Amino acid sequence: MDRYSPDYNSKPLHTQAFGNAWVEAYGYRGATGATDKIYLGVIPAGVVVTGVRLITDATAAGVKVDLGFEPYDASDGPLADPDAWLAGADIAAAGIVDSKAHPIVFKRAVKLVATISGAAITGTPQLTAVVDGQMVGVA
């Protein structure tokens, strides 16, 4: 039996040089406490986030991170999801961690938040979250 997704044949046409593609890199460099939150930046309203990659320098033994979001305006939503993309990812050694989350549509702006756990980050390592998506608008 053939099965069709709900949006089969209803994708918007891309009429500009780069279509509706959206990508942003958010970074932080520095030490943190073992339970600190790092607010990396703002994902604007009208974006479907299709992929998130966290690139890190070596941090310290035992350091883990959750990567998710909080509403930019708590009264406006959406509900916070502190580990939407990564939950307890080990970032003690330098490397790259890719999210396996499904796409998320944001009709309101959200804060991209990394929550440290396990141990404090020592020194001044760089953390970079590369967020890929599609600009679809808020209609």
Rank of each mutant, 00 (worst) to 15 (best):
D57E: 15
Q134V: 15
K100V: 13
F69L: 02
A129M: 06
K111H: 11
R108L: 01
A129D: 06
G118N: 09
D98V: 05
A94H: 05
P103A: 13
T56M: 07
A80R: 09
T50E: 12
P82C: 00
F106C: 08
K111E: 01
V130S: 05
I104T: 15
G51I: 06
D83G: 07
D76F: 04
I91H: 07
P82D: 07
L67T: 07
L86M: 04
D76R: 14
D76V: 15
V49W: 00
V63G: 02
V130T: 13
G51D: 12
V49I: 14
T122K: 08
G133T: 06
L86A: 04
A114V: 11
G77F: 03
S75E: 09
V113S: 04
E70F: 09
L79I: 06
P125G: 11
A87K: 14
L86T: 04
G88D: 09
A58G: 11
A89F: 03
A74P: 12
A92S: 15
F106G: 10
Q134D: 15
I116P: 01
S99D: 04
V131D: 12
A58Y: 09
I116Q: 03
D66E: 08
V63K: 02
D132I: 01
A93Q: 15
F106W: 12
S117H: 08
A109Y: 04
L67I: 14
K111D: 01
L112E: 03
